[in-house]
Protein backbone atom coordinates (compact mmCIF):
# COMPACT_ATOMS: atom_id res chain seq x y z
CA UNK A 1 0.00 0.00 0.00
CA UNK A 2 2.01 2.87 -1.32
CA UNK A 3 0.09 6.07 -1.30
CA UNK A 4 1.54 8.97 -3.28
CA UNK A 5 3.50 11.35 -1.12
CA UNK A 6 2.61 15.02 -1.04
CA UNK A 7 4.83 17.03 -3.37
CA UNK A 8 6.36 19.80 -1.26
CA UNK A 9 8.99 21.11 -3.67
CA UNK A 10 7.66 24.62 -3.09
CA UNK A 11 7.98 24.21 0.67
CA UNK A 12 4.23 24.16 1.22
CA UNK A 13 2.42 21.07 2.50
CA UNK A 14 -1.15 22.32 2.65
CA UNK A 15 -2.88 24.68 0.26
CA UNK A 16 -6.37 25.94 1.03
CA UNK A 17 -7.64 28.39 -1.54
CA UNK A 18 -10.91 30.32 -1.61
CA UNK A 19 -12.57 27.75 0.62
CA UNK A 20 -16.17 28.47 1.61
CA UNK A 21 -18.48 26.40 3.78
CA UNK A 22 -21.94 27.42 4.84
CA UNK A 23 -24.42 25.77 7.14
CA UNK A 24 -27.99 26.92 6.56
CA UNK A 25 -26.82 30.28 5.31
CA UNK A 26 -24.23 30.76 8.07
CA UNK A 27 -20.81 31.13 6.49
CA UNK A 28 -18.52 29.05 8.66
CA UNK A 29 -15.67 29.58 6.20
CA UNK A 30 -15.66 32.51 3.85
CA UNK A 31 -13.15 32.57 0.98
CA UNK A 32 -10.45 31.30 3.29
CA UNK A 33 -6.86 31.14 2.06
CA UNK A 34 -4.33 29.30 4.15
CA UNK A 35 -0.90 27.85 3.39
CA UNK A 36 0.99 25.64 5.81
CA UNK A 37 4.72 25.25 5.19
CA UNK A 38 6.39 21.88 5.32
CA UNK A 39 7.76 21.21 8.80
CA UNK A 40 6.40 24.29 10.51
CA UNK A 41 4.41 24.56 13.72
CA UNK A 42 1.44 26.82 13.11
CA UNK A 43 -1.07 28.03 15.65
CA UNK A 44 -4.62 28.93 14.72
CA UNK A 45 -6.49 31.24 17.02
CA UNK A 46 -9.86 32.88 16.79
CA UNK A 47 -12.99 33.44 18.81
CA UNK A 48 -15.72 30.82 19.01
CA UNK A 49 -17.39 30.49 15.64
CA UNK A 50 -14.38 31.87 13.77
CA UNK A 51 -14.24 28.63 11.78
CA UNK A 52 -11.33 26.77 13.37
CA UNK A 53 -13.08 23.45 13.78
CA UNK A 54 -14.78 23.69 10.40
CA UNK A 55 -11.36 24.25 8.87
CA UNK A 56 -10.07 21.05 10.49
CA UNK A 57 -13.19 19.22 9.35
CA UNK A 58 -12.61 20.30 5.75
CA UNK A 59 -8.98 19.16 5.77
CA UNK A 60 -9.87 15.75 7.21
CA UNK A 61 -12.80 15.15 4.89
CA UNK A 62 -15.56 15.40 7.47
CA UNK A 63 -17.09 18.44 5.84
CA UNK A 64 -17.17 19.15 2.12
CA UNK A 65 -16.66 22.80 1.20
CA UNK A 66 -19.15 24.55 -1.10
CA UNK A 67 -16.31 26.16 -3.04
CA UNK A 68 -12.53 26.30 -3.16
CA UNK A 69 -9.63 23.87 -3.38
CA UNK A 70 -7.72 21.97 -0.72
CA UNK A 71 -4.46 20.32 -1.74
CA UNK A 72 -2.01 18.22 0.21
CA UNK A 73 1.30 19.20 -1.35
CA UNK A 74 0.87 20.29 -4.93
CA UNK A 75 -0.35 16.95 -6.15
CA UNK A 76 -3.06 15.52 -3.88
CA UNK A 77 -6.58 16.87 -4.06
CA UNK A 78 -8.03 16.21 -0.62
CA UNK A 79 -11.56 17.01 -1.72
CA UNK A 80 -11.59 13.81 -3.77
CA UNK A 81 -10.71 11.58 -0.79
CA UNK A 82 -12.72 10.23 2.11
CA UNK A 83 -11.78 10.27 5.79
CA UNK A 84 -9.92 6.96 5.86
CA UNK A 85 -7.99 7.76 2.70
CA UNK A 86 -6.96 11.15 4.03
CA UNK A 87 -5.73 9.47 7.20
CA UNK A 88 -3.77 6.94 5.15
CA UNK A 89 -2.23 9.67 2.98
CA UNK A 90 -0.62 11.10 6.10
CA UNK A 91 -2.88 13.62 7.79
CA UNK A 92 -3.54 12.89 11.46
CA UNK A 93 -6.00 14.66 13.67
CA UNK A 94 -6.26 14.92 17.42
CA UNK A 95 -9.64 15.87 18.72
CA UNK A 96 -10.41 18.29 21.48
CA UNK A 97 -11.72 15.57 23.76
CA UNK A 98 -9.12 12.84 23.94
CA UNK A 99 -10.48 9.78 22.17
CA UNK A 100 -8.19 6.89 22.86
CA UNK A 101 -9.44 3.32 22.86
CA UNK A 102 -10.12 2.87 26.54
CA UNK A 103 -10.66 -0.89 26.41
CA UNK A 104 -7.21 -1.40 24.90
CA UNK A 105 -3.79 -1.03 26.48
CA UNK A 106 -1.49 1.88 25.71
CA UNK A 107 0.62 -0.49 23.62
CA UNK A 108 -2.37 -1.78 21.67
CA UNK A 109 -3.56 1.75 21.04
CA UNK A 110 -0.25 2.52 19.35
CA UNK A 111 -0.21 -0.85 17.59
CA UNK A 112 -3.51 -0.08 15.88
CA UNK A 113 -2.27 3.32 14.85
CA UNK A 114 0.96 2.16 13.18
CA UNK A 115 1.62 3.14 9.63
CA UNK A 116 0.75 -0.04 7.68
CA UNK A 117 -1.78 -1.75 5.47
CA UNK A 118 -5.07 -1.20 7.25
CA UNK A 119 -7.38 -3.21 5.04
CA UNK A 120 -9.42 -6.02 6.56
CA UNK A 121 -7.45 -9.12 5.50
CA UNK A 122 -4.08 -7.60 6.15
CA UNK A 123 -5.28 -6.67 9.62
CA UNK A 124 -6.71 -10.12 10.34
CA UNK A 125 -3.46 -11.83 9.44
CA UNK A 126 -1.06 -9.24 10.79
CA UNK A 127 1.87 -10.05 13.04
CA UNK A 128 4.09 -7.42 14.60
CA UNK A 129 7.55 -7.23 13.07
CA UNK A 130 10.65 -6.28 15.02
CA UNK A 131 10.82 -3.00 13.21
CA UNK A 132 7.26 -2.17 14.19
CA UNK A 133 8.00 -3.01 17.82
CA UNK A 134 10.86 -0.55 17.66
CA UNK A 135 8.55 2.07 16.17
CA UNK A 136 6.08 1.61 19.01
CA UNK A 137 8.85 1.74 21.61
CA UNK A 138 10.15 4.92 20.08
CA UNK A 139 6.74 6.57 20.19
CA UNK A 140 6.28 5.45 23.81
CA UNK A 141 9.62 7.12 24.54
CA UNK A 142 8.61 10.35 22.79
CA UNK A 143 5.31 10.69 24.61
CA UNK A 144 6.81 9.57 27.92
CA UNK A 145 4.47 6.65 28.58
CA UNK A 146 7.01 3.80 28.54
CA UNK A 147 6.10 2.71 32.06
CA UNK A 148 2.38 2.71 31.20
CA UNK A 149 2.64 0.50 28.13
CA UNK A 150 0.54 -2.36 29.50
CA UNK A 151 -2.03 -0.24 31.29
CA UNK A 152 -5.49 0.15 29.84
CA UNK A 153 -5.90 3.53 28.23
CA UNK A 154 -9.06 4.03 30.26
CA UNK A 155 -6.93 4.16 33.41
CA UNK A 156 -4.77 7.06 32.21
CA UNK A 157 -5.08 10.63 33.47
CA UNK A 158 -6.49 13.28 31.16
CA UNK A 159 -3.03 14.57 30.30
CA UNK A 160 -1.68 11.10 29.61
CA UNK A 161 -4.61 10.41 27.32
CA UNK A 162 -3.78 13.58 25.39
CA UNK A 163 -0.19 12.41 24.95
CA UNK A 164 -1.26 8.92 24.03
CA UNK A 165 -3.49 10.36 21.36
CA UNK A 166 -0.61 12.43 20.01
CA UNK A 167 1.45 9.24 20.13
CA UNK A 168 -1.19 7.44 18.10
CA UNK A 169 -0.90 10.15 15.47
CA UNK A 170 2.89 9.81 15.48
CA UNK A 171 2.75 6.03 15.10
CA UNK A 172 0.90 6.58 11.84
CA UNK A 173 3.91 8.59 10.60
CA UNK A 174 1.86 11.47 9.32
CA UNK A 175 3.24 14.43 7.40
CA UNK A 176 0.68 16.82 8.79
CA UNK A 177 -0.72 16.82 12.31
CA UNK A 178 -3.85 18.70 13.24
CA UNK A 179 -4.14 19.19 16.96
CA UNK A 180 -7.28 20.61 18.51
CA UNK A 181 -6.88 22.34 21.91
CA UNK A 182 -4.15 20.15 23.36
CA UNK A 183 -3.84 22.24 26.51
CA UNK A 184 -7.50 22.26 27.53
CA UNK A 185 -8.06 20.86 31.00
CA UNK A 186 -4.41 20.13 31.73
CA UNK A 187 -2.38 21.04 34.80
CA UNK A 188 0.43 23.58 34.45
CA UNK A 189 3.09 20.85 34.36
CA UNK A 190 1.13 18.89 31.80
CA UNK A 191 0.78 21.99 29.62
CA UNK A 192 4.54 22.48 29.71
CA UNK A 193 5.18 18.89 28.71
CA UNK A 194 2.64 19.12 25.91
CA UNK A 195 4.29 22.30 24.61
CA UNK A 196 7.68 20.55 24.60
CA UNK A 197 6.23 17.55 22.85
CA UNK A 198 4.61 19.59 20.09
CA UNK A 199 7.70 21.73 19.48
CA UNK A 200 9.83 18.60 19.25
CA UNK A 201 7.52 17.24 16.56
CA UNK A 202 7.81 20.21 14.21
CA UNK A 203 10.48 19.79 11.58
CA UNK A 204 9.88 16.16 10.85
CA UNK A 205 6.15 16.78 10.77
CA UNK A 206 4.10 19.85 10.03
CA UNK A 207 1.88 20.67 12.96
CA UNK A 208 -1.24 22.84 13.09
CA UNK A 209 -2.47 23.61 16.59
CA UNK A 210 -5.82 25.18 17.43
CA UNK A 211 -5.71 26.70 20.87
CA UNK A 212 -7.49 29.18 23.12
CA UNK A 213 -4.79 29.40 25.75
CA UNK A 214 -2.76 32.43 24.66
CA UNK A 215 0.22 31.80 26.92
CA UNK A 216 0.42 28.29 25.51
CA UNK A 217 0.32 29.67 21.97
CA UNK A 218 3.02 32.17 22.83
CA UNK A 219 5.22 29.40 24.22
CA UNK A 220 5.12 27.23 21.10
CA UNK A 221 4.27 29.28 18.02
CA UNK A 222 6.52 30.96 15.55
CA UNK A 223 3.67 31.80 13.21
CA UNK A 224 0.12 32.51 14.29
CA UNK A 225 -2.91 32.73 12.05
CA UNK A 226 -5.92 34.60 13.34
CA UNK A 227 -9.28 33.54 12.00
CA UNK A 228 -12.30 35.75 12.10
CA UNK A 229 -15.72 35.05 10.65
CA UNK A 230 -14.43 32.28 8.47
CA UNK A 231 -11.43 33.98 6.90
CA UNK A 232 -7.87 34.85 7.78
CA UNK A 233 -7.65 38.17 9.54
CA UNK A 234 -3.93 38.32 10.21
CA UNK A 235 -0.90 36.10 10.04
CA UNK A 236 2.59 36.49 11.45
CA UNK A 237 4.57 36.26 14.65
CA UNK A 238 2.75 36.40 17.96
CA UNK A 239 4.01 39.97 18.55
CA UNK A 240 2.89 41.01 15.10
CA UNK A 241 -0.65 39.70 15.44
CA UNK A 242 -1.02 41.01 18.97
CA UNK A 243 -0.16 44.49 17.79
CA UNK A 244 -2.35 44.20 14.70
CA UNK A 245 -5.10 46.82 15.06
CA UNK A 246 -7.85 44.68 13.49
CA UNK A 247 -6.98 41.69 15.66
CA UNK A 248 -6.97 43.87 18.76
CA UNK A 249 -10.38 45.18 17.85
CA UNK A 250 -12.18 41.92 17.00
CA UNK A 251 -10.42 39.32 19.02
CA UNK A 252 -7.96 40.36 21.65
CA UNK A 253 -10.09 43.32 22.61
CA UNK A 254 -13.12 41.17 23.22
CA UNK A 255 -11.27 38.44 25.02
CA UNK A 256 -9.21 40.92 27.01
CA UNK A 257 -5.85 39.29 26.53
Amino acid sequence: MNYPKPDTTHGVILYMEDVSVSFDGFKALNNLNLYINDGELRCLIGANGAGKTTLMDVITGMTRPDAGTVNFGQNIDLLKLNQEQIARYGIGRKFQKPTVFEALTVYENLYLSLHMDKRLWATLLHKLSGEQRDDIDQVLETIGLVSMRNRYAGELSHGQKQWLEIGMLLAAKPRLLLVDEPAAGLTVQEVERTAELLTSLAGEHSVVVVEHDMSFVRSIAKTVTVLHQGSVLAEGSMDYVQSHPEVKRVYLGEEGV
Binding site: T60, Q83, E84, A87, R88, G92, R93, F95, T99, V100, F101, E102, A103, L104, E108, Y111, L112, S113, K118, R119, L120, T123, L124, L125, H126, M168, A172
Partner: peptide, 24 residues
Protein backbone atom coordinates in the same frame (compact mmCIF):
# COMPACT_ATOMS: atom_id res chain seq x y z
CA UNK B 1 -7.21 -11.47 20.12
CA UNK B 2 -5.63 -10.66 16.76
CA UNK B 3 -5.08 -7.14 15.56
CA UNK B 4 -8.44 -7.03 13.80
CA UNK B 5 -10.04 -7.88 17.14
CA UNK B 6 -8.46 -4.80 18.64
CA UNK B 7 -9.79 -2.73 15.74
CA UNK B 8 -13.23 -4.17 16.42
CA UNK B 9 -13.01 -3.25 20.11
CA UNK B 10 -11.98 0.22 19.01
CA UNK B 11 -15.04 0.42 16.78
CA UNK B 12 -17.23 -0.53 19.73
CA UNK B 13 -15.88 2.31 21.83
CA UNK B 14 -15.22 5.00 19.23
CA UNK B 15 -15.92 4.23 15.62
CA UNK B 16 -14.99 7.71 14.45
CA UNK B 17 -11.55 7.44 15.99
CA UNK B 18 -10.94 4.13 14.26
CA UNK B 19 -11.69 5.63 10.88
CA UNK B 20 -9.36 8.54 11.64
CA UNK B 21 -6.63 6.06 12.37
CA UNK B 22 -7.21 4.89 8.79
CA UNK B 23 -9.37 1.77 9.06
CA UNK B 24 -12.44 1.29 6.96
Amino acid sequence: TCKAGKVVLGIRDSERRVSFVGYN
